[in-house]
Write a protein that binds this DNA or RNA. Structure first.
Length: 427
RNA sequence: GGAGAGAUGGCAGAGUGGUCGAAUGCGGCGGCCUCGAAAGCCGUUGUACCGCUUGUCGGUACCGGGGGUUCGAAUCCCUCUCUCUCCGCCA
C-alpha cells in the first residue's frame, strides 16, 4: 500500500511514477476523498472535545447538586451529530482503503521505463549455451523415455498442470529441494522455517495477492482459507502486526513449500510439461530490512539465487524488469532466467523483488529505530531460491547424453545417490 | 462436537461507570557509581490520526473486532473472531 500522505504532498511525482506502470488513473478521486476525510475528522474531533468538556461539567455540577439537565441535553445533541459524522467518515475511509489496496507500488529510480518485457534490461549473463553435438531432446521426451514423470496420470487424478514425479524423477526433484535448503543453510544467511501451506485473507492482503488477484488462487470455501501461491505469503506474514527490534534486522528466512497457482488467463502460453504448472515446489528467501539496507540486501539475495545455478553449472542471465513488467507490489525486481537447449529460449526460474515498505504498510510490520526511538515500516524482499520445475527442464536438457541418458551434476549426487539416469534405471 | 476461562502498552500483568493512556514488574533510553562492565540507585519511556502558531504545541481516538446502554465505558449488555483448560472423536 502506498502512503496517502506522500501522494497528498507529492501529487505530480506520484502520478508520474504510477504512469510508468500505466496506472496513473488509479489516483483519480483519491485526493478529494482524502480531503473530505480530513475535513470530517476535524469537525467530529471538535465536537468530541466539546462533549468531553460537557461531561466534566456534568460530573462537577452533579457533585455540587446543581442543575444538569440542560448540559445533558446539549451533550446528547452533540452525540447524535458525532454519530452521523463518524458514520460518513467510516464509509469514506473504507472507500479510500479499498482504493489504496488496488494501487501498485511505485517503481524505484533505478528501474527502467517501459511497458513490456521488450524493455527489460539484461544486466549480466553467466556461462555459455551448452554445446551438444546431437539434436537435444526436450524434457517431455526425456521424461517419457526415462519414465521419470507422468503428466497423464497427474491429469487423471487432479487435472492438467499437476505433475507426477516417478522413480528417479521423484528422487531428483526431492534432491533439488534438499540441495537448495542445505545450500542456504551452509552459507549461513537464512534461518530455515517450515510454515503452513494454507493461509487466511489477512495474510494475502498483507503481501498483496488480495484483494486484486483472488482468481489466481485456490480457495477452500468452507474455511475461507487459500492454498499459498508462494511461501512469500506465510513467511512475510510471520511478522505481521509486529514491532521488531532494529538490532535483529535484517531478518532472513528461507523455507520450502509447494506452491499452488490457478494461472487463470495464461492458457495456451508455455503450457507444455513443466513450463507452466498449477502445483510446484519452491524454496523461497524472504528478508526484513531497515529501509537504508534494502537495496544492498536485494543485490545479495539475487546473488544467493544465482550462486545455486552456478554450482549446478547452468547457463543463466539476470534481467532487470522495466516498470511495466514488474509484479504488483515490487519497487524493483530482477528475474533470473536459465537457458533451455531444447526450447532454445530463456525460462524464468526466479524473481527477486524489493517491495520497500509496500507490504510492510499493508501488513503493519515495523521496527523501532534506535536513533529516533520511533517505529518505522521495515522493507520486505523475497526471491525464489529456487523453484524445481523449470530447473528440471534445463537440468535434464543440459545434462543429457547422446545415448538418451542424463547425467546428474556432481553437487546433486550425494542427494540422489546416483549419477546417471537411464531408461533401464539409475547407476 | 460438548463444557468452562480468557483477550489490557515492546513483553508480563493489575484495574471500583467519571481526574484511566491506564498501577506494578521486565525490557528500552538517560544519568550517578566504575579504569571499564555487571550489580545497585535516580530519572525517563505508548501508538495512530487531525490541526496549525512545527512545539518538551493543541485536539481526537485506541484496553481483541463490531454494535448497544449512558451526559460519560477498559469497566455494563449483545455479537463475532481468536487463545487456553477439561471431556469426546481422530492420528
Amino acid at each position: 500500500m502506498l502512503d496517502i500522505r506522500f501522494i497528498r504532498e507529492n501529487e505530480t511525482e506520484a502520478r508520474r511514477l504510477l504512469d510508468m506502470r500505466g496506472q496513473a488513473l488509479l489516483l483519480g478521486g483519491l485526493l478529494s476523498l482524502d480531503k473530505r476525510r480530513r475535513a470530517l475528522i476535524e469537525a467530529t474531533d471538535a465536537q468530541k472535545a466539546r462533549r468531553n468538556e460537557l461531561s466534566r461539567e456534568i460530573s462537577e455540577a452533579a457533585k455540587r447538586g446543581g442543575e444538569i439537565s440542560d448540559l445533558k441535553e446539549e451533550s446528547r445533541r452533540i452525540g447524535d451529530s458525532i454519530t452521523a459524522g463518524d458514520a460518513e467518515l467510516k464509509a469514506i475511509e473504507n472507500d479510500l482503503e479499498s482504493r489504496l489496496l488496488q494501487i501498485p507500488n511505485f517503481p524505484h529510480a533505478s528501474v527502467p521505463p517501459g511497458r513490456t518485457a521488450e524493455d527489460n534490461l539484461v544486466v549480466r549473463e553467466w556461462g555459455i549455451k551448452p554445446v551438444l553435438d546431437f539434436t537435444p531432446k526436450d524434457h517431455l521426451a526425456l521424461g517419457k523415455e526415462l519414465r521419470i514423470f507422468d503428466f497423464e496420470r497427474g491429469t487423471k487424478i487432479t487435472g492438467s498442470g499437476f505433475p507426477v514425479y516417478h522413480s528417479a524423477g521423484a528422487v531428483l526433484e526431492r534432491s533439488l529441494v534438499n540441495f537448495f535448503l542445505d545450500f542456504h543453510r551452509e552459507r549461513g544467511t537464512y534461518t530455515e522455517v517450515t510454515v503452513p501451506f494454507v493461509v487466511n485473507r489477512k495474510s494475502l492482503i498483507g503481501t498483496g495477492q488480495l484483494p486484486k488477484f483472488e482468481e489466481d488462487l485456490y480457495l477452500s470455501n468452507t474455511d475461507d482459507l487459500f492454498l499459498i501461491p508462494t511461501a512469500e505469503v506465510p513467511i512475510t506474514n510471520l511478522h505481521r502486526d509486529e514491532l521488531l527490534n532494529e538490532s535483529e534486522l535484517p531478518i532472513c528466512y528461507c523455507g520450502y513449500t509447494p506452491c499452488f497457482r490457478r494461472e487463470a488467463g495464461s492458457y495456451g502460453k508455455d503450457t507444455r510439461g513443466f513450463l507452466r504448472v498449477h502445483q510446484f515446489d519452491k524454496v523461497e528467501m524472504v528478508k526484513f530490512t531497515r529501509p537504508e539496507d534494502s537495496y544492498a540486501e536485494h543485490e545479495k539475495m539475487t546473488k544467493d539465487a544465482t550462486a545455486i545455478l552456478e554450482s549446478l553449472g547452468l547457463h543463466y542471465r539476470v534481467v532487470l524488469l522495466c516498470a511495466g513488467d514488474m509484479g504488483f507490489g515490487a519497487a524493483k525486481c530482477y528475474d533470473i532466467e536459465i537457458w533451455s537447449p531444447a526450447e532454445q529460449k530463456w525460462l524464468e526460474i526466479s524473481s527477486c523483488s524489493n517491495f520497500e515498505a509496500y507490504q510492510a504498510r499493508r501488513a503493519n510490520i515495523r521496527y523501532r529505530r534506535s536513533d529516533t526511538g520511533k517505529p518505522e515500516f521495515v522493507h520486505t524482499l523475497n526471491g525464489s531460491g529456487l523453484a524445481t520445475p523449470r530447473l528440471l527442464v534445463c537440468l535434464l536438457e543440459t545434462y543429457q547424453n547422446d545415448d538418451g541418458t542424463v547425467s546428474v551434476p556432481d553437487v546433486l549426487k550425494k542427494y540422489t545417490g546416483f549419477g546417471l539416469i537411464t531408461s533401464s534405471g539409475v547407476r
